[in-house]
Design a protein around this nucleic acid. Sequence first.
RNA 1: GCCGGGAUGGCGAAAUUGGCAAACGCGCGCGACUCAAAAUCGCGUGGGCUCCGCCCUUGAGGGUUCGAGUCCCUCUCCCGGCACCA
Length: 818
Amino acid sequence: MPRRQYDPSEIEPRWVDTWASEDLYATPEDEGRPRFYALDMFPYPSGDLHMGHAEAFSGGDTIARFQRMRGNDVLHPIGWDAFGLPAENAAIKRGIHPKEWTYANIDQQRSTFKRLGMSFDWSLQFNTCDPEYYRWTQWLFLKLFDRGLAYRKNAPTNWCPHDQTVLANEQVINGACERCGTAVVRKDLTQWFFKITDYAQRLLDDLGTVEATWPERVVTMQRNWIGRSEGARVTFEIAETGDRVTVFTTRPDTLWGVTFFVFAPEHELVSKLAGAGGATEEARVMLEALQATPLTNREQADSREGVPLGVHAVNPVNGERVPCFVAPYVLMEYGTGAVMGVPAHDQRDFEFAREHDLPIRVVIQPEEGAPRDPDRMTEAHDHEGVMVNSGPFNGVHSPDSIGRVITWLGEQGIGEAAVSFRLRDWLISRQRYWGAPIPIVHCPTCGEVGVPEDQLPVLLPDDVDFRPGGESPLARHEGFVNVTCPRCGGAARRDTDTMDTFVDSSWYFLRYCSPHRDDVAFDVHAVERWMPVDQYTGGVEHAILHLLYSRFFVKALHDMGMVSFVEPFIGMMNQGQVIFGGASMSKSKGNLVEPMPIVDRWGADTLRLTMLFAGPFEDDIDWKLIAPDPNRPPGVHGWLGRAWRAVHDAADAGDAAQPEALTRLAHRTIKGVTDDLERFRFNVAVSKLMVLTNEIRHTLDAGGGASDAARALVLMMAPLAPFAAEELWRRTLGETVSVHASVWPPFDEALAREDHAVLVVQVDGKVRDRLDIDPAADEVACREAALGSERVRQALDGREARRIIVRPPKLVSIVTGP
RNA sequence: GCCGGGAUGGCGAAAUUGGCAAACGCGCGCGACUCAAAAUCGCGUGGGCUCCGCCCUUGAGGGUUCGAGUCCCUCUCCCGGCACCA
């Protein structure tokens, strides 16, 4: 066969077509083999794929291919997270329909995925904006609704004035909309929520089951987001009105230090108490202003402002009457929306007390150092210590104090142990067009009525004025809004909100198991076969939102008896970012590097390998450092060429005997690369293949044969450089079955072992000699070899060896000192 | 402020988890091939010195150990998350 140059632009498109015509990556039928679900976070179709996609999917595809070759049935699907605001915004800007924009981008991304050689089973593809999919999103909403896990309430919400919609708590970053960066304002609206708080404890507990196989930071972020605190609930009574108000505190041991009481501005009792007669006219005006202030403006003010209510709360532990205030530093969203003020032991209360000239009473004294003096304190003492001025508890030390006070509160009937979570319910309604309509009808007689299952999907109408402003777009569509009540048949109105797109993505991994079933959301048997996902690959930006929501969905479905497992994702890995010159890439910065020009010029294998070889998968890749000259190929391209030539030369050398040293290296490499790929250490795996390639080259140059080693090399290249490996396998080596349908090479443990050893001899911690030694040498032989060394004798210089530590066959450490 | 992660040659990074620091690659230098260049191949490449050898070196300082990039303590800097959470 005439020698051909390594030419990816000729090779790669050819295999794209062949693989498709052979249906090479079809998901196997269940015949009892082990299975592996390799899932990548599905992309949002906003234009073509970018370098971040190339990085993530290169890793995910390598895993899928490796697991297939290891004899697993692999589910490796792809689809599109296709509803969402950007489609609408882009469509408004360009005057085209969101649907048209979305499906055009999906076509573009699909074609790029194919060119990159991703081993997806394309027959499984779906898009969340397809009615065949969102029908079941709506169905799941109704299941949650039936169980009381979806409900509507009026609440202060985060409103983005630019995008004209509410946002979930998780979508507000530093007081701004995560999408457009506009400062979020507070708006009281009636909205749909999912009751994720019911699952707070389980979402926290079950993290323990994935802790070992998820990135540590993701687990930590979830824990912090759920934010469990232990403490007590204590009930105070308002002296003037008799109202009872409960507070949550993590420091019940400071109850004797309460000198005031504070309500959040939204607290339900505030208006009543302000009208109880004690409040001044000035205070009432201030209160109104406070209640009208947007959330974010308050947060940014960082003030200790507050309004006296003119009423008093009675401290249940000692009967003291303390003044009540309303202050924005108390949040309605956390705890009970009211707090006891303990200025001596809480920094915020301390600042509030100083601002409003309120008394400060020390009830915890530190065990060491000077006792705290209320008149001289410059900050709260929020640490541990001994209880003082605390009636029956004087002299009690932390850490016992909190538990003892809680027990006592219970005995007195004043309070009880309590747990509070930071996590809030998930606000899912959006006043935008491009999303799944909420399948609810509002009937004047029957109230909120779920759309009957046989009437799903509630289709998103095409002919809608989706420009933002005023009412939500669907509310302006008469034909959509006006319906008859499914229950009583009377005139009713459809709910005109759409669902947050995170609802769509909270169950897509279940749909992949049986994407074309039109009678169920998912086939129970298919889901039980594939789920939970073995390895989930995607960006760490979803560490909280998407992962928390998906975990909630799966737990809720578990409780409904629909799935047997409680966690959706067993293994998880997050790719690093692809940056350029130390900064994130963007068109406006002019530092955008796109994948396709690189693929066209150097090939998809080079692009994939460059990503995987650059460093650990989870670390950022600075493209400027990896490929500094755009006119020269990244370094791995050179290796592909060397491997190409080495395999061709090995084939030409035919049956020439392969030296044992090369055979041993090949087995060592198989062992190492297998281990590296199992642990997603792609960069190290590639480096081992480079070493093997170099050794094949040297062997051939020395006149030896290398055909077995070359075959092993090609097999191991397959998950990492699928095109080059396939070309070498089928064309150069003449195999008929695809390398990607071949079995991962086995290794012989005896051959993989090192056949020679170097005995390092240290004297007083310094390396003094290196001796070749039989790897089977025992302790005695190693000791003798070391002591027999001339150089060691010189280093000892007549001193006596007091202690000799031997680790055969690697090391002898001789100690002369004491 | 709280929580988490990190710092190794000119650069990206390895180091079997306490046992030869810098594998592999990039870049650079020298050489072969070539009229020449590219491509390819070979050799060299942490620093220092009195250079066939020796000494030093994993952000800084201390500790444990026969032995520390790896474990412990203190500190500096960088990156990420949360941030009135009572």
